[in-house]
Computed example of a mutant assay.
Amino acid sequence: MSKGTSMNIEAFSRSKYKNSTKPGDDVILIEPDQVLAVFDGATDPTGAFYNGESSGRIAARSAARCVADMLVRGTLDEAPAEMIFQEISTSVKTAAQERNVAHPASTTAALAVKCGDMYRILALGDTGVRLNGTKILQHHKIIDTVSTAARIQVHKTLSQRMDESDDVEFATRQTIFLGLEAAIETGKLTRQETELAIQAATQASGLPQSVVAEFLSGGIRTQFHYANADHLLGFASLNGGQVIANGLTDLTIPASELESIEIFSDGYISIPTSGIRCADWEAEFTRVETEDFHKTGAFPAVKGSTSSETCDDRTVISAGI
């Protein structure tokens, strides 16, 4: 096998539900020696399923089919990245409408496309790409930094008056999802305790406190309003709307300079420092779960793990070239 002309491919994807009773929101697309892609559908905050699929999985699967179609048409080689992602976004909207999805469906996308003797790396959202086991291309949303810092503070507060770790985690998730104002109204938190969460998120993000407070007051259930929005908390999303180029990646690199490509969803909180195999990613995942199960310490995240769920779905494609 000559370098740059073929691939040795591994892939692994696991739902966040430990008993595997529900599918995750990640979708893989593999066309050997043509395109590798991972799509991470956004979790539907309503928890709704449509014929066995969440809105996030519907979005991710629609995006994968759209990319496969563009591959056949030759669009992925030279078309502007903005046009490619807009076509994917439009396909997500169509799929959501066909299934009468109530909450806006959305997904990320990260692709490695073989273009002759070159590879084109395209990404939008927080799904990441690593080249040659060293160069990492991954965009992190500032709105997640806000949610994470607030969640950690709320988790700390609730841990002082709740004994069961699962109860603390689920109560924390509900608080951050429904918003701090709802937590005050229901008596879950005091006004002073919500102020501590706002202060923590303001410090972590560096954003004006008024911006942070407005978002956290309404909670993650309002996050879709910031998708593709011209706002300090705005982020790019393949959600059927006009896609903004915030954090968009479009990189072309000679195949002769590549030894490996890894594409991974953000369910992997930490990236392995050695090895590119799926087993290496899973070993790192296990290490993180052992060291910071609640994701409030060395590996902060928007959600922590519980006895029934990990913090997120996780997916990785590893290709040796």
Rank of each mutant, 00 (worst) to 15 (best):
T194W: 01
V243F: 08
K3W: 07
G4Y: 02
V211C: 01
T290F: 00
I198T: 09
S256A: 15
L131C: 09
F39S: 13
S307M: 02
K156Y: 01
I253V: 14
E53W: 00
G219E: 07
R221P: 06
T90D: 15
E214I: 01
F12G: 05
A59Q: 08
A236V: 05
C278S: 10
G128V: 06
C115G: 09
S159C: 11
E262S: 13
C311L: 15
R191V: 14
T43P: 14
V92T: 04
A236I: 08
G206I: 02
I198V: 15
K22F: 13
R287I: 02
L29V: 06
S62R: 01
A64Q: 11
Y50M: 02
M83N: 09
Q160C: 13
V168P: 14
F299S: 13
S20W: 00
T43G: 15
R151M: 08
D280K: 05
L238W: 07
I176K: 09
I276A: 09
R277L: 11
E289R: 12
G234V: 13
V146G: 04
E98L: 00
Q209K: 13
N132Y: 06
A171Q: 07
G128I: 12
D280L: 01
S89D: 10
A95N: 03
T46R: 12
S20C: 14
G41P: 12
D280M: 03
M162N: 14
P32A: 10
V154T: 03
P45Y: 02
D313V: 02
Q199C: 10
S270C: 14
T145M: 00
Y17G: 10
S270D: 15
A283L: 13
L71W: 07
S256V: 11
S159Q: 07
N132P: 11
A197E: 11
G56W: 03
L238I: 11
G234Y: 03
V72R: 08
P104C: 09
A64E: 06
D25M: 05
S165F: 02
V168Q: 10
R221G: 06
T194M: 12
A60L: 10
K3V: 08
E257V: 05
G47N: 09
A229H: 05
V27F: 00
P80Y: 03
T306L: 07
P45M: 09
S265W: 01
T145H: 05
V101T: 04
I184W: 05
D312L: 06
K93C: 10
D167N: 08
Q97C: 10
T194E: 06
D266G: 10
Q203W: 03
A48R: 12
G4Q: 01
E181R: 13
K156E: 14
P104L: 04
L124S: 07
N246T: 15
F224L: 06
I276M: 13
L238H: 14
R99E: 00
L124F: 03
P32L: 04
